[in-house]
Design a protein around this nucleic acid. Structure first.
Length: 804
RNA sequence: GCCGGUGUGGCGGAAUCGGCAGACGCGACGGACUCAAAACCCGUUGGUAGCGAUAUCGUGCGGGUUCAAGUCCCGCCACCGGCACCA
């Protein structure tokens, strides 16, 4: 048979659609009695340029797993949707004058068409679009629940602001001092912003990791992101005024080594005691200098410590009673801990650098290093440390020190996180309006639940206002309203939510996408949750995943969902690089359009290639020749139709078939798609060597290959007389006993070097194996005249004879 | 700097528990088919030496354990990803 993919791919896609082949059965429906399998892939942002081959790889992994699980007898939910709010669409709208709604709809239509052309086995009745008002109604609902529970709050703060995009960014979106969207340098700006109190869930997010099956590096990244550290808060009195300066430290055991203190340039202590500080001019000048530095400069100058000593106020070590100077320096951040530290230059490299530069004493309290050369952070015996002297176990010293601080009432153990609260508002049009009313009498009042969705008002011009005001602020009919509580004239919040909002709960909406009464029916949530397997990119492991886990934990706490964790298992695919080995990008012009591949080679080839190109989790460059190799493979499979004759088993192929079924079955579950395909290629080569196979065997082959190349395999099934869809057929079973040959070729070594091979019966006993090996003339010759020291035989593997 | 990962032919990559390194695919070379080319088909393909059987070297580098190391241990190097003055 000719692999005439252009003719049959469309045919099978239509048939799957008509038969609703990939419909997921809700509880109570026929099919729901089967075990459920919820496979989730990160839904795309529908950009104007259409899908990327990277999307195809990202979806093909669980596409194959879920197709196989369906054939295994699972009730599979494999849905798709669109994360459509966000800046690129709005920027296109600003540039072209086309409304973001239209831009979004066009892009979604384009993506939908592409997804269908690839033949993904999706349940198309469950498509969600985060910009649909029936969707964002529930995004707003969750926000209000958080507001009700004190988790959404407003605060004036220095925020990361992108002057180019004109938006406030979260810490996550401005890493390295660069805007995540346009890569401009971000600046710090004082602004009233919305926060979600994600830090309150830090421990739950951390502890929850014990109950989920994420790839180890994914877990590790989340652990680092949350950044929990244990230590102590210690209150230092000030010598000149009745005031405490509170610091956070992970090393209370080094308290005897404190020779100075450092506070962040923004620390409130400075303004409070401005009149006591003799060198206030220098302090102010330094502070201004720091404010001017971008985050980037601040982190680049790590080794070059700067700072100013406060002249007029100093601290008192609560344990030793010694007077110590206080500096301001920008190596201490206001946003972590208390914005103040006790500096122990002998045992902290940053404090050491600073002390060296400013000529401050360095007092050793832990033996083991050379503090003249560098700070010593290792373990050792405590010295110069009063009651701590002689202790050499760090944990014990920390415990003793903390107890003492508590006894004296000057400190206590405490915990800190690197994770910060989530800056949750954006001053842009294309996002979910924050459903809050500002009333002059009642303050912030939530829009009543029954009034949701709070719709985005129609608009012609979407550019942000000067000074970074939301465009919504220009629409009087939207802004002016009455207070839902007291009826007085009031103003609406005009900021919108960040793009991460809609994607934080979309997997819940797939479960019940058309529900008008709730975000999803509890019975359905009970049935489908948690997501059994979630696959996506590494770049979303810290932001999107942490955000959505946070929302889910919250929803669990208010009884809206039945599980604490949303995702039982998480994996990640590797990037597809350009043919030049570089990341695909428009500017490099090394991108590949999946449409072109489908046009030239067919969807089955595209699907097979993205999974065959290498380790699924690793990056690999695109290679057009290898794509042709996959085409050749599928063509040769199609040609089997011409040689398949009769039924039953071909004896020479029986073991290879059982071996391959086993290999493919196991490899799919382990996401080792490349070796699964290689195994089928090997089997194909064996079939051609053999020159014949039966129609039953061809059907088995097609069934195995079906998750990868479903169009071709449906076609083969039809040619073989199959009436029902192969995609819904039963997954082939294998007989363990038939996965091994009756005899095995075993290597024979002399002194660890392979000299020959002998064919031995399966599980041949050691003695016999050695005897048979020795009977080989080459081995006999090698042993001749030498003393045999040792004989090793590992059944079915190897024989090694050690001689002298 | 810290955390995680990777390093194997010309290339992408295989290799359960330590047991024949290089599966599978690409490319290359040779052949067949063709007026010719493409496609398809057959064969060879880690390096070195040899007509050959074969020998010898070979999984980033240096040591070690073992009958046997890509795999385990110790010490390095390079690259990739994440975080980064986090007290």
């Amino acid at each position: 048979m000719r692999n005439n993919f252009k003719e049959f791919e469309k045919k099978w896609q239509t048939r799957w659609d008509e038969e609703k082949a990939f419909h997921a059965a809700d509880p109570g429906e026929k099919g729901s009695e089967k075990p459920k399998f919820y496979a989730l892939v990160e839904f795309p942002y529908p950009s104007g340029s259409g899908m990327h081959v990277g999307h195809i790889k990202a979806y093909s992994g669980l596409e194959v797993v879920s197709r196989k699980r369906r054939m295994d007898g699972y009730n599979v939910l494999f849905p798709m949707g669109f994360d459509a709010f966000g800046l690129p669409t709005e920027n296109t709208a600003v540039k072209t004058g086309v409304h973001p709604r239209i831009v979004t709809d066009n892009n979604i239509a384009k993506f939908t068409n592409q997804l269908r052309r690839v033949g993904f086995a999706l349940d198309w009745d469950r498509v969600v679009d985060t910009t649909d008002e029936d969707y964002y109604r529930w995004t707003q609902w969750i926000f209000l629940k958080m507001f009700e529970n004190g988790l959404a709050f407003r605060d004036t703060a220095l925020v990361n602001y992108c002057p180019n995009c004109k938006v406030v960014l979260s810490n996550e979106d401005s890493q390295g001092g660069k805007c995540d969207i346009c890569h401009s340098d971000i600046i710090q700006k004082s602004k009233d912003v919305w926060y979600l109190r994600i830090t309150e869930y830090a421990d739950k997010l951390l502890n929850g990791l014990a109950d989920v099956d994420y790839l180890p590096n994914i877990k590790q990244q989340q652990v680092n992101w949350i950044g929990r550290s244990e230590g102590a808060f210690i209150n230092f009195s000030l010598a000149e005024v009745d005031e405490k300066l509170r610091v956070y430290t992970t090393r209370p055991d080094t308290i005897f080594g404190v020779t100075f203190m450092v506070i962040a340039p923004e620390h409130p202590l400075i303004d409070k005691y401005a009149d006591k500080i003799a060198n206030m001019d220098a302090v102010i000048a330094y502070r201004e200098e720091c404010a001017k530095k971008t985050e980037f400069e601040r982190t680049q100058l790590v080794k070059d410590k700067t700072g100013v000593c406060l002249d007029g106020i100093s601290g008192i070590n609560p344990i030793t009673g010694k007077n110590i100077p206080i500096y301001i320096a920008d190596y201490v951040m206001m946003g972590y801990g208390t914005g103040a530290i006790m500096a122990v230059p002998a045992h902290d490299s940053r404090d050491w650098d600073f002390a060296r530069k400013f000529g401050i004493d360095i007092v050793e309290v832990i033996k083991g290093g050379d503090i003249e050369k560098e700070a010593y952070a290792g373990d050792g015996e405590m010295v110069n440390s009063g009651f701590l002297n002689g202790i050499s176990v760090k944990a014990e010293a920390i415990k003793r020190a903390t107890e003492e601080l508590k006894k004296l009432g000057v400190g206590e153990g405490g915990v800190q996180y690197k994770m910060k609260d989530w800056a949750f508002n954006r001053q842009r049009y294309w996002g979910e309006p924050i459903p809050i009313v500002h009333c002059p009498h009642c303050g912030m009042v939530p829009v009543p639940y029954e009034e949701l969705p709070l719709r985005l008002p129609p608009m012609e011009e979407f550019a942000p206002g000067v000074g970074g005001e939301s465009p919504l602020a220009r629409i009087d009919e939207f802004v002016n309203c009455t207070c839902p509580k007291c009826g007085a004239p009031a103003k609406r919040e005009t900021d919108t939510m960040p793009q991460w909002a809609g994607s934080s709960w979309y997997y819940l909406r797939y479960i019940d996408p058309h529900n008008a009464e709730a975000l999803a029916d509890p019975a359905k949530l009970d049935y489908w949750l948690p997501v059994d397997w979630y696959n996506g990119g590494m770049e979303h492991v810290t932001r999107h995943m942490i955000y959505s886990r946070f929302w889910h934990h919250f929803l669990y706490d208010i009884g809206a969902v039945p599980t604490a964790e949303p995702y039982a298992k998480r994996t990640a695919q590797g990037l597809i690089l350009g043919a030049d080995g570089e990341k695909m990008s428009k500017s490099r012009g090394n991108g590949v359009d999946p449409n072109d591949v489908i046009d030239t080679y067919g969807a089955d080839v595209l699907r097979t290639y993205v999974l065959f190109m290498g380790d699924y989790g690793a990056a690999a460059p695109w290679n057009e020749s290898s794509v042709r190799g996959c085409k050749r493979f599928l063509d040769r499979v199609a040609d089997l139709c011409d040689i398949a004759k009769g039924n039953g088993v071909t004896s020479a192929l029986e073991v290879p078939f059982h071996k391959t079924i086993k290999k493919v079955t196991e490899d799919i579950e382990a996401m080792k798609f490349n070796t699964a395909i290689a195994a089928m290629m090997e089997l194909l080569n064996k079939i051609y060597d053999c020159g014949t196979l039966t129609r039953d065997e061809l059907l088995t082959f097609a069934t195995l290959l079906c998750p990868f190349a479903p169009h071709l395999c449906e076609e083969i099934n039809e040619i073989l007389g199959g009436k029902s869809l192969l995609s819904l057929a039963k997954w082939p079973a294998y007989d363990e006993a038939k996965t091994v040959d009756a005899s095995i070729e075993v290597a024979v070594q002399i002194n660890g070097k392979v000299r020959t091979t002998v064919v031995l019966p399966l599980n041949c006993p050691k003695d016999e194996a050695i005897a048979l090996a020795k009977a080989d003339e080459r081995i006999a010759a090698a042993i001749e005249g030498k003393t045999v020291i040792k004989e090793i035989a590992v059944p079915n593997k190897i024989v090694n004879i050690v001689v002298k």
